[in-house]
Design a protein around this nucleic acid. Structure first.
Length: 811
RNA sequence: GCCCGGAUGGCGAAAUCGGCAAACGCGAUGGUCUCAAACACCAUUGCCCGUGAGGGCUUGCGGGUUCGAUUCCCGCUCCGGGCACCA
């Protein structure tokens, strides 16, 4: 491999300098304009992997680039240090999660440092630090007071592998645990929830204010799942009534049956004596099904429902319709009951066919339309006073009618559920609540925070937190009456920790509050947030909820409605078609590159390999490309240290070097701004090749082009550029220089290559003055023998000119 | 099933507003240096025909708009991701 310089020595030297001199430490009262750059703080799983390298390369580049543009850049780093792997290791080895975690933080920190990424380490935050636990618990208590945290018995997602409850967001579409892959089952448990649904509308609407990838916004919109419609009462023949939710009140005349969820509370009442055996068998059968089986669309539809024996009255036309149960109707959404309109809903159509129920279309099908249920727009039919109206109008009129009748109203439903935060685990933030036989759930007073877990616990896979078996922790006194009480032994979902860490970074050592809102206002929102696409829903939704709730509670600035103004989601690293990850065992450790080609070369590879948002395929060729990056840096080194040899007879390249330099600044500056780092690298390589030709011809090179190259590369490859700059400018630091500016007049080309096309095909290229006019273009083109040959003697019937670059002659 | 994104040489990719397709790099081939190798440096490298000059073809497939389409429109195929009985 190319060894123009001692990579290891130089990288060590500069990493030590940046650390010892506190180069990237900033104060909140810094007079420069503020910029907050943040990479998602990592779960400390040990030494960095290529995903980290990619993430922190982009983040570090932003920090250095913004600094060179005159900003005071806040660049903090911390660790999402609570979580399952440390506890699972504890169960296996008996080692307490804290030393296990601390050791992994040290490893990760070491590899981040070796990458050359710079942070204000004074601000380091770790989820498992007692101070951080203190304020996480304090925030929980504020949420509790405000009614945003509450406890209820709920059917929850239980993962037998992880031995804990999961949030809806952590259960995959196939009903398995996102972490262990075990099939998740339902259990009824008393659990703590955050009322994220109270912010459903804001979480949806405020997406419009964010400069985020459209893909992430769409995923969040779908997850929130807002649907507008109506809720109304249906009288039961000879009895009470049931409420249904529908998004298509315009099709109500086509309701030919009603379906309830098997868990619906009215089921016993509605079941007639004749149907009781069948209904009970059905309900029992459904309850044994796992979530996976229930969510499956496979299997015969006629085994999935049962008739209750009762009839409801369709209030629109007075018709009596049968009431069924079906497993596909969910108790957790809407009212747990639906009006079925098989004419306009395919699932209802399938059910109607299976149970031989009538189908009445209520929307006119377009001419020539074939199919079953029709979900498109069209004039209403078979709908009395709605006939002829199109969907939007018919919906509005139907709801108005329901409201006039006093039996229903407009209603918005969300797919989003409240956030279940209880975890039956040890290695998380304890929930600061005490249970008193007399006073129930009592919050731990602020002055008794933090509630810390003891160290002398036994780690056993029991399905309950080890805290439950620790008498010293469990037994306490009721804060209200002082009588014996027990502590909550569940801990919080680790997503709670990551929902506010970016606020703590602004004011990380505040002992009176989680942070001072005035200091937060100086930095937040985060100007540039960088992380993986895998957090598109969970973390990013929870953090947005926290930001809104904390602002409303007066904990953070009132006007801070969103945490992350701009978001960038980097692509994944793949290997052999699947994501590179520890669990897949296909990691390629960065350390081997740090030890050989160096961090600069590895950084350059990640920037050069393709657009930052695209996935990267780690292939057999990758090492060769990384070597190529190291080779380029060695070329830059030789150029900047005057080690490039002349070549006998080498021609001096055409064109003016100043012009080339200014054109490079213009292009590279723009490409940095649009995150097109791969083309920045390409442009710098091309420029380096040009400078080589100059040296090879002249034996020398002016300073300005070389210095410019070093400045433009400085955010990408910080070590080698810092060293070269210091050698060329003793006592100076490249990253303290201002970003180079360009003269637009110099950056613009003097001559252009005019393309002459005949009938759209390129027939000649002519070097012309950049200020050429159309007449001159045509004159030059007609003088070209190649063009004459292509025209074959005929005069062009039409001439399209786009000075100075293009002329198209059409025969 | 629905919603997004993608498809360009042997490979990673570029073409920013509809105007030279393939910049830059990897790999490959040939050469200089060397006793030799490594390193470094130079040159060639989309495909087909042709000794050559040159000609033809080419951005997943089929149409369309346009003087001109990798780019815009319509219809497909394949790949990746998200959601998936949400009434």
């Amino acid at each position: 491999m190319a060894e123009a310089y001692d990579v290891q020595e130089i990288e060590r030297k500069w990493q030590a300098r940046w650390r010892d001199e506190g180069t990237y430490e900033v104060e909140s009262d810094d007079p420069r304009p503020h910029f907050y750059s943040l990479c998602m703080y990592p779960y400390p799983s040990g030494a960095a992997h290529q995903g980290h390298v990619r993430n922190y390369t982009f983040g570090d580049l932003i920090v250095r680039h913004r600094t060179m543009h005159g900003f005071a850049v806040l660049s903090p780093m911390g660790f999402d240090s609570f979580g399952l792997p440390a506890e699972n290791a504890a169960i296996k080895t008996g080692v307490h999660p804290r030393p296990f975690t601390d050791a992994r933080i040290a490893e990760l920190k070491e590899s981040i440092t070796r990458l050359g990424a710079v942070y204000d380490w004074r601000r380091e935050v770790r989820s498992h630090d007692p101070e951080y636990i203190h304020w996480t618990q304090w925030i929980f208590l504020r949420f509790l007071e405000a009614g945003l945290a509450y406890r209820r018995k709920a059917p929850v997602n239980w993962c037998p592998g992880c031995q804990t409850v999961l949030a809806n967001e952590q259960v995959l579409a196939d009903g398995t645990c996102e972490r262990s892959g075990d099939v998740v089952v339902k259990r009824d448990l008393e659990q703590w929830f955050f009322k994220i649904t109270a912010y459903a509308d804001q979480l949806l609407d405020d997406l419009d204010t964010l400069d985020w990838p459209a893909r992430v916004k769409t995923m969040q919109r779908n997850w929130i799942g807002r649907s507008e419609g109506a809720e109304f009462e249906l009288p039961i023949v000879g009895g009470s009534s049931i409420r249904v939710f529908t998004t298509r009140p315009d099709t109500s005349f086509g309701m030919t049956y009603v379906v309830l969820a098997p868990e619906h509370p009215l089921v016993p009442e509605l079941t007639t004596a004749g149907q009781r055996a069948a209904v009970e068998a059905f309900v029992a059968e459904v309850s044994t099904h796992t979530e996976v089986e229930r969510q499956s669309t496979e299997g015969p539809v006629n085994k999935r429902g049962v008739f209750t024996g009762s009839y409801a009255v369709n209030p629109f036309n007075g018709q009596e319709v049968p009431v069924y149960l079906a497993d596909y109707v969910l108790m957790g959404y809407g009212t747990g009951a639906i009006m079925a309109v098989p004419g306009e809903d395919q699932r209802d159509w399938d059910f109607a066919e299976a149970y031989d129920l009538p189908i009445v279309p209520t929307v006119q099908r377009p001419d020539g339309w074939v199919g079953q249920a029709y979900t498109g727009d069209g004039p209403a039919i078979n709908s009395q006073w709605l006939d002829g109206l199109y969907k939007a109008e018919a919906v509005a009129k139907a709801i108005d009618w329901l409201e006039e009748q006093g039996i229903g109203e407009r209603k918005v439903n969300f797919r989003l559920r409240d956030w279940l935060l209880s975890r039956q685990r040890f290695w998380g933030c304890p929930i600061p609540v005490v249970y008193c036989p007399e006073h129930g759930a009592v919050p731990v007073p602020d002055d008794q925070l933090p509630v810390l877990a003891p160290d002398d616990v036994e780690f056993r896979p029991t399905g309950e937190s080890p805290l439950r078996f620790h008498e010293g922790f469990l037994q306490t006194a009721c804060p209200t009456c002082g009588k014996p009480a027990t502590r909550e032994t569940d801990t919080m979902d680790t997503f709670v920790d990551s929902s506010w860490y970016y606020l703590r970074f602004a004011d990380p050592h505040n002992a009176e509050a989680p942070f001072d809102p005035a200091v937060v206002a100086q930095w937040l929102p985060v100007d540039q947030y960088i992380g993986g696409i895998e957090h598109a829903i969970l973390h990013l939704m929870y953090a947005r909820f926290f930001t809104k709730a904390l602002a409303d509670l007066g904990v953070s600035p009132k006007e801070l409605r969103e945490p992350f103004a701009r978001l960038f989601t980097q692509g994944m690293i793949r290997m052999g078609g699947s994501k590179m990850s520890k669990s897949k065992g296909n990691l390629v450790a960065p350390a081997k590159y740090f030890d050989t080609v160096g961090a600069d070369a590895l950084r350059l590879f990640h920037l050069f390999v393709g657009p930052p948002a695209d996935d990267v395929d780690w292939s057999e060729q990758t090492d060769e490309v990384i070597d190529g990056c190291a080779r380029f840096l060695a070329r830059v080194w030789r150029l900047a240290t005057g080690e490039v040899a002349t070549v006998d007879g080498a021609p001096r390249p055409a064109g003016n070097l100043d012009r080339a330099t200014h054109a490079l600044i213009a292009k590279v500056s723009e490409d940095y701004d649009r995150w097109s780092y791969n083309t920045v690298v390409a442009a710098c390589m091309e420029f380096t090749n040009l400078l080589y030709k100059h040296v090879q011809a002249d034996g020398t090179i002016p300073n300005e082009p070389v210095d410019t190259l070093l400045l433009l590369l400085a955010p990408m490859v910080p070590h080698v550029t810092a060293e070269l700059w210091e050698r060329r400018h003793p006592g100076e630091h490249v990253h303290a220089q201002a970003w180079p500016t360009f003269d637009p007049a110099l950056a613009a080309a003097l001559t252009e290559t005019m393309i002459v096309q005949v009938n759209g095909k390129v027939r000649d290229r002519i070097e012309v003055d950049a200020g050429i006019d159309e007449a001159e273009m045509e004159r030059l083109a007609m003088a070209s023998p190649k063009v004459q040959a292509a025209l074959d003697g005929s005069r062009p019937a039409k001439v399209v000119a786009r000075p100075p670059r293009l002329l198209n002659l059409v025969r």
